[in-house]
Simulated scan of single mutants.
Amino acid sequence: MLIIAHRGASGYAPENTIAAFELAINQNADGMELDVHLTKDGEVVICHDDDVKRTTNSQGLIKDMTLEELRRLDAGSWYGESFRGITIPTLQEFMALAADTHMLINLEIKNLPYYHKGIEQKLIRSVHEHDMLDRVVISSFDHYALAETARLEPAMKLGVLFSTRVIDPWDYVRKLPFAAYSLHPHYSFVDVEYIRQCHAHGYKVYPYTVNEAEWAGPLAQAGLDGVITNYPDRFR
């Protein structure tokens, strides 16, 4: 069972920052999950929300701000004074860090409620520049974005995210116009039968956000492929 750090080791450091990613590496996580947006000037940056107000000292939509404007923001002090001055990272900065590891990398496209036109091509270009096609999964709740990714790069691993309880999600995924690699459901949807059905249809299962090792133990025995967690060390 892979241990995938959710927005880095976000239980211990500001989410989606280099500090959180470096900590996930130090905690021997098997992978990292992060969220990407496009800035006003077309740069790919790492942040979960479309508005920066929760995780910085300012507010405003990422799509309406340039990279230079985002770089002026403090993305760490909201979490703790020791992280003051940390900035929102770019995808290129993260990929340079991750390229020196053997970790599975899950890039989540945040296309809702705002659609980042062209973000798929930029992610694919970065993956190829760092020679990481074999260990990157691109996921999204926007399944149209996944279809566009598949059109541009058929070899890309794609993860289908679900925030609701879809009836027989493996059947839904099987009918999509692209080949999925994995299903990424909320952890509360997952049980032994869910895992069995996904595996029978050829899909891996990476639920989010799993923070209790006691929950994952029995499902690990049932073949759960991985957990996306804020606390990688708890599972290691």
Results as ranks from 00 to 15, higher is better:
Ala180Thr: 05
Ile88Met: 07
Ile195Arg: 05
Ser82Gln: 14
Met156Ile: 13
Ala216Gly: 06
Ala99Arg: 15
Tyr115Gly: 00
Leu176Ile: 05
His186Phe: 07
Thr149Ala: 14
Tyr114Pro: 00
Pro207Ser: 07
Asp100Thr: 14
Asp131Pro: 00
Ile109Ala: 11
Ile138Met: 14
Tyr187Gln: 11
Ser126Glu: 14
Leu104Ile: 09
His116Asn: 15
Thr209Val: 09
Leu97Asn: 03
Asn111Ala: 14
His130Tyr: 15
Tyr203Gln: 01
Tyr114Met: 01
His184Gly: 03
Thr101Met: 10
Glu129Cys: 04
His102Ser: 15
Asn111Met: 01
Tyr172Lys: 10
Leu158Trp: 00
Thr164Leu: 13
Thr87Ala: 11
Gly118Val: 08
Tyr114Asn: 08
Tyr79Ser: 09
Glu214Pro: 00
Tyr194Thr: 05
Ser182Tyr: 06
Gly217His: 11
His128Thr: 01
Leu91Ala: 09
Ser126Tyr: 10
Arg151Ala: 14
Phe83Ala: 04
Ala147Leu: 04
Arg135Glu: 01
Val210Asn: 00
Val192Ala: 15
Arg135Met: 05
Lys175Tyr: 03
Glu108Asn: 01
Tyr194Glu: 07
His130Trp: 15
Lys122Ile: 05
Lys175Val: 00
Val210Ile: 11
Arg165Ile: 08
His130Met: 06
Ile109Gln: 12
Leu123Gly: 03
Pro218Lys: 10
His116Pro: 14
Tyr208Thr: 02
His199Asp: 12
Pro89Trp: 07
Leu146Ala: 08
Gly202Ala: 11
Asp171Phe: 08
Thr90Lys: 02
Ile138Lys: 06
Val127Ala: 10
Ile105Glu: 03
Ile167Ser: 13
Val166His: 11
Ala200Asn: 13
Leu97Gln: 12
